[in-house]
Design a binder for these strands. Structure first.
Lengths: 155, 155
DNA sequence: TAGAACGCTGGAGCGCACTCCAAGCAAGCG
DNA sequence: CGCTTGCTTGGAGTGCGCTCCAGCGTTCTA
């Protein structure tokens, strides 16, 4: 067991990625070309190949002619990467996480720490954005009032 | 009146910028050097000059020797810019907003629209981040459980 | 009056995250 | 068979947001 965590995303709890990404094939016959994955994830084929080059992806299966054949677990991984990207996490850090996953079970605590730190970052980003929202709302009220004043001036 | 909006930030409602930025001089004797502004805003002097070059700042007063002397209203503007930057708004859009402010009162509705769109963006960024937070929390729980399992294995 | 500290400018350079290119191979089709 | 479509590679290029540099002037302190 403990097959270096490919769990979680399998459970049908997900429902909020950017692209539709509904049409997955069942495990066993899950072999997607790069352009299919591009369509499913919203990334370009270029980016997918680049992710592989920099070590952000595990080694992807190949067809007998050498073409990439992505599997469901690769889509799961890309979904996680997409989420982490939304947090503003630098690609280098995601590569670090990918390395930890590849390194095996003894990196669990390090992975845990990395995710926990990321979680803290996300919380403060949310707080920042809410602060900005407050400023924005004040400005918007100002302009709404100004608009009304201009309108009544014209009467 | 309607002096192209330098209001809002004057009111003491602010309290959540990154740097301390407490020590402002009263209006009238508010002439800050570029390095003072750098210290107050957390930006570098390079960046401040660059903001000016690209049209993100209004024209800054100069001393008799040609050095920049920032005023409180410039700090207010920089505070707003800082907030907008946190939202991920591209610099080009902030420049656009700055142009609208410089253009005068007849751009009120356009400014209003820009801010309203930005507000929508911020709301969806927050939603995205909360989605990511959910994923992160599931992963973190997974690793916490795995850690406990490993610990009990060792008994 | 020397030297350090600070500021000025135009323009070049950098790091990140892609993005694209050229040249070539393999499969499918009329 | 030739043509199109899709994929392969290493390496070069792009856009953004800074970041730094050289060469110079001014101001302050000893």
């Amino acid at each position: 067991m403990t097959e270096t965590e490919t769990e979680t995303t399998g459970a049908g709890a997900d429902s909020c990625a950017g692209p539709p990404q509904g049409n997955r094939r069942p495990d066993g016959e899950d072999r997607y070309t790069i352009s299919e994955v591009a369509a499913l994830t919203g990334l370009t084929a270029h980016t997918l190949r680049w992710y592989e080059r920099i070590g952000l992806m595990p080694h992807i299966d190949r067809s007998h002619t050498g073409q990439r054949r992505y599997r469901n677990r690769d889509l799961d991984w890309l979904a996680l990467v997409g989420k982490l990207r939304l947090t503003g996490m630098p690609v280098a850090d995601m590569v670090r996480y990918a390395e930890l996953v590849r390194a095996g079970d003894h990196t669990y605590t390090e992975r845990f720490e990395l995710l926990r730190r990321t979680r803290e970052d996300v919380l403060s980003r949310i707080a920042e954005l809410q602060g900005t929202l407050a400023v924005l709302d004040r400005k918007i009220d100002f302009y709404a009032d100004a608009g009304r004043a201009l309108a009544s001036e014209r009467t």
